[in-house]
Write a protein that binds this DNA or RNA. Structure first.
Length: 422
RNA sequence: GGAGACGUCGCAUAGUCCGGUCGAGUGCGCCUCACUGCUAAUGAGGUAAGGAGUCAAAUCCUUCGGAGGUUCAAAUCCUCUCGUCUCCGCCA
């Protein structure tokens, strides 16, 4: 949620942000109008309520005929108060729904433009020259079959398209990745968490996933619960309605399943496990003071890079353009791993600085010497298991279809150096 | 799933039966000041959030788990709901 005080002061800035995202500028004027209407309704209601309260205490003390007269007066006032309160509630609701439609203010540093206008910040690691090694590149589906690591056919049989089984070495690889990710995160000061993957509407709404992303969210009608698409949701909502004390940044790392309907991506990445309806993920989340948020964002990015480097995957980092940011994000960096079978970089991690957008919605603040203030929230992927499996299998494949295990993962896989053919 | 108890300002609690004097008392914690060489102890004062308003104040409004209702008036009465605890049932 945008800060209304800021919006009143500088509506132009909000309009520019909306424009940069390719979203409605007119909405800003609508919000301003609704805000003025609401404030006048507040005044009316409060004036009447003050009167009613004063009269009420007179009623309590009065006797006999005087009391009857006061009661009559009070009765008619009561109707006016109810009407004024009703009007105020409508104004409140109208303003709320308008404000919730506004996306976060984009960071001034973020590249302006649409999806393709991202800026490549750097490329790290070296891509293998497979032809030079005499290797015909196999994609992860083929490798997964040869290794007995991924069973996509049966995933489809049991659950439908975009579902899979990890089997044997594939299943163990997931555990190894999680262990490595959680270990690195803990070393970096994150508190490990296993959060619930089903959440109430307030948590989903508060993290901004019921806006433009709503069509990608699974909802359990019978119980009014949502399946989370990322543990960002339960982690952000963990401190919902709380005023935080103590040391910042407050960092959590969670392992959870993630569920996505992939409604808008029919026909995209239909092969393999690159884009699936369910996968497991290790996600970082940080609560931090506003003036430290940008530095913390860089740190989250560096933790993502640390992980990719540990598993020896060539990648690049992109600064995502304003038009491709989620509604909560002010700025976003993606790490894209090199995928040999596609001969291009593909997103494997993403880190967003949501500034105070989520914390305002979720009513999370931090205590200061004189009062409270909103806090910034940031999130970042540490390991999206399926995509990392794709990257590992393809980048570390050998001529016979076996796959080299990067050193950092070996301790979690019984010290083995390779995934062997089944 | 069944039976019962409970949910109040950081924590613990009073107030609810019998509606107005309750935005709400007390203890602890915390902050400021006084006193003491320091600490402790003691004394005095202060100590929720959100909103309207203002240069800033004053002041006013909202909130007693949540949502509705009754009433001139609700922490207090009614309904529903969520959560916690105890006991029973079922179960990984």
């Amino acid at each position: 949620m945008i800060d209304l005080a800021t919006l009143r002061l500088d509506p132009g800035a909000v309009k520019r942000s909306q424009a940069a995202r390719g979203e409605s500028e007119a909405l800003v004027d609508d919000v301003l109008a609704a805000d003025i209407a609401r404030r006048s309704a507040v005044g009316e209601f409060e004036a009447l309520r003050t009167k009613q309260k004063a009269l009420g205490s007179q009623v309590a003390k009065a006797q006999g005929g005087e009391k009857q007269a006061l009661l009559t007066e009070s009765k008619s006032l009561s109707d006016q108060v109810k009407a004024a309160e009703g009007a105020l509630r409508e104004m409140d609701a109208a303003l709320d729904s308008l404000v919730l439609g506004l996306s976060n203010l984009v960071d001034a540093e973020a590249p302006v433009g649409t999806e393709d206008d991202f800026v490549v910040l750097k490329e790290v690691g070296s891509k293998r020259d497979f032809p030079a090694e005499g290797i015909t590149v196999r994609d992860h589906v083929e490798l997964g079959e040869l290794l007995g690591a991924i069973d996509i056919e049966r995933g489809a049989k049991v659950s439908g398209s975009r579902f899979y089984y990890l089997t044997g070495q594939g299943a163990m690889l997931e555990f190894a990745l999680i262990q490595l990710a959680m270990t690195l995160a803990q070393k970096n000061g994150f508190i490990p968490m296993i959060p619930p993957a089903l959440v109430k509407p307030a948590a989903m709404e508060g993290t901004g996933f019921l806006g433009q992303a709503a069509e990608n969210v699974y909802r359990l009608e019978a119980d009014d619960l949502y399946l989370v698409g990322t543990s960002e949701v339960p982690l952000a909502a963990y401190h919902m309605d709380e005023i935080l004390d103590g040391d910042f940044p407050l960092r959590y790392v969670a392992y959870s399943p993630c569920f996505r309907r992939e409604a808008g991506s029919h026909g995209k990445d239909t092969r393999g496990i690159f884009r699936v309806h369910w996968f497991d993920k290790v996600e970082m989340f940080s609560f931090c003071p506003v003036d430290e948020a940008q530095a913390e964002h860089q740190r989250l990015l560096s933790f993502e890079e640390e992980f990719l480097q540990a598993i020896e995957i060539p990648y690049r980092v992109i600064d995502v353009a304003t038009g491709d940011l989620g509604s909560s994000a002010a700025r976003k960096f993606d790490c894209e791993a090199w995928i040999p079978s596609q001969e291009r970089y593909r997103e494997v991690t993403s880190t967003s600085n949501c500034t105070t957008f989520q914390s305002r919605r979720l009513k999370i603040r931090k205590r200061t010497t004189d009062g409270v203030e909103p806090i910034a929230t940031l999130n970042g992927t540490l390991c999206a298991v399926t995509r990392i499996i794709v990257a590992i299998l393809e980048n570390h494949q050998e001529a016979d279809g076996s796959v080299r295990i990067p050193k950092a993962l070996q301790p979690y896989l019984g010290g083995a150096s390779h995934f062997k053919l089944k």
